[in-house]
Measured scan of single mutants.
Amino acid sequence: MALNTPQITPTKKITVRAIGEELPRGDYQRCPQCDMLFSLPEINSHQSAYCPRCQAKIRDGRDWSLTRLAAMAFTMLLLMPFAWGEPLLHIWLLGIRIDANVMQGIWQMTKQGDAITGSMVFFCVIGAPLILVTSIAYLWFGNRLGMNLRPVLLMLERLKEWVMLDIYLVGIGVASIKVQDYAHIQAGVGLFSFVALVILTTVTLSHLNVEELWERFYPQRPATRRDEKLRVCLGCHFTGYPDQRGRCPRCHIPLRLRRRHSLQKCWAALLASIVLLLPANLLPISIIYLNGGRQEDTILSGIMSLASSNIAVAGIVFIASILVPFTKVIVMFTLLLSIHFKCQQGLRTRILLLRMVTWIGRWSMLDLFVISLTMSLINRDQILAFTMGPAAFYFGAAVILTILAVEWLDSRLLWDAHESGNARFDD
């Protein structure tokens, strides 16, 4: 018995066209964080690309023209004298008006014999932002004059995390709450300039795509075929072959399989920071003279006294001054041990922890910024005066060393310790 099946006739004509040209192939790229070699397709503007294995951002879609970056830099340069030299806060102490600005706080630190601690604050609040705007201006002028731009481009990517104007702005709020127990506070004209400078700096850093600047100024022929001998440069993120001198053909720094002496430098910085954190938390970090009496505060006791007036601000200072430094030390110690013992479990967790400490590390400088600003506000000789204690130097040095330890660690070593050939990683 035959089955009668109805015929289905399409209502619209289906047209099949042959592909007349070869589909576009992607360029081969190595991930600078996990060293995976993959094919990167062509990316349009405002599109980002991520590593298929570790999800690290390979290409950032946010990109401004150099002219727009230069305009932002010149605007920031105009704001800087007002943000640093004009009063941020006014207080009335014992019937006398006192003005506080950024430069005055750094000068008070240096004047009291601790120039190293003052230079830490100076670099993060004044030096690094000033280098940022002058570097962008150098790129703008240098591109037109045919100057060598490689050193500036190499420095810009590392400079971003040292620009800490946003953290200093939080420190202004913390210092205001600490001082309000002794005097009446009012915002100064410099505060508005400083807030504007923070906003412009944040926007500029978020749109400063150094890798795209490398592509514009020093374009290189990408690798179009897969080759395990391809290496990625950690300076400019170019994937290719080393030249005859073993250097990256684009930025001219040595092109090595792994960062040289990464573990040794990381261990040295980490152990030194552990040693410095002990006096930083045991010795007094601030000293207040009130009517001839002397009151010393460690980091913890200062947080407890701050909690009596504002528990939320005390929580912020606790996280930045105690929780973050010790968390960074514990995480980095764990990561280094996992590399030495070739741990194969929990790779995803370790990668996330490394990215976390990379982002939060700079916030530990908050305590030094609060001390710097408070020193310029309260300084009335023996009637009422505020000065920093010996722990300030140890704390600042420990924070900087932990930042350097994270920067010096080559994250690809975590993958080397893991089993080879993993296309995915999980716990």
Rank of each mutant, 00 (worst) to 15 (best):
L3V: 14
T5P: 14
P6W: 07
Q7I: 10
R25Q: 11
Y28G: 14
Q29L: 10
C31T: 00
D35W: 03
M36G: 07
M36V: 14
L37C: 13
E42C: 10
I43T: 13
S45T: 12
H46W: 12
H46E: 10
A49Q: 07
R53T: 10
R59C: 09
R59N: 14
D60N: 09
D60S: 10
G61F: 15
L69D: 13
A70Q: 15
L79F: 15
P81Q: 12
L89W: 05
W92Q: 04
L94I: 09
L94Q: 01
I96Q: 08
R97W: 14
I98H: 04
I98W: 03
I98F: 03
A100R: 02
N101D: 10
M103F: 05
M109N: 05
G113E: 07
D114Q: 06
A115Q: 07
G118E: 13
C124F: 04
V125P: 04
V125S: 09
P129I: 05
L130G: 13
L132H: 03
L132N: 04
I136W: 12
W140V: 15
F141C: 06
L145H: 04
G146I: 01
N148V: 02
W162F: 08
D166W: 15
V170K: 12
S176M: 12
S176G: 06
A187Y: 10
G188H: 07
F192L: 13
S193H: 01
S193V: 03
V195N: 08
A196V: 15
H207Q: 14
V210H: 14
L213K: 15
W214M: 15
E215G: 13
R216A: 10
F217V: 06
R225K: 09
D227W: 10
E228H: 10
C233I: 00
F238S: 07
G240M: 14
G246W: 04
L278H: 07
A280G: 06
L283C: 04
I285Q: 01
L290A: 02
R294S: 03
E296R: 14
I299S: 13
A307D: 03
F318D: 01
I322K: 03
K328P: 00
L337S: 15
I339M: 07
K342N: 10
C343I: 11
Q344L: 10
L347H: 12
L347Q: 15
R348K: 11
T349I: 14
R350K: 14
I351N: 15
S364G: 13
I371D: 00
I371C: 05
L373C: 03
I383Q: 02
F386G: 00
F395K: 00
A397H: 03
A398K: 04
L401Q: 06
L404F: 05
W408Y: 04
W408F: 06
D410W: 00
L413W: 10
L414E: 06
D416N: 12
D416C: 07
D416F: 08
D416Q: 07
E419S: 10
A423I: 07
A423Y: 15
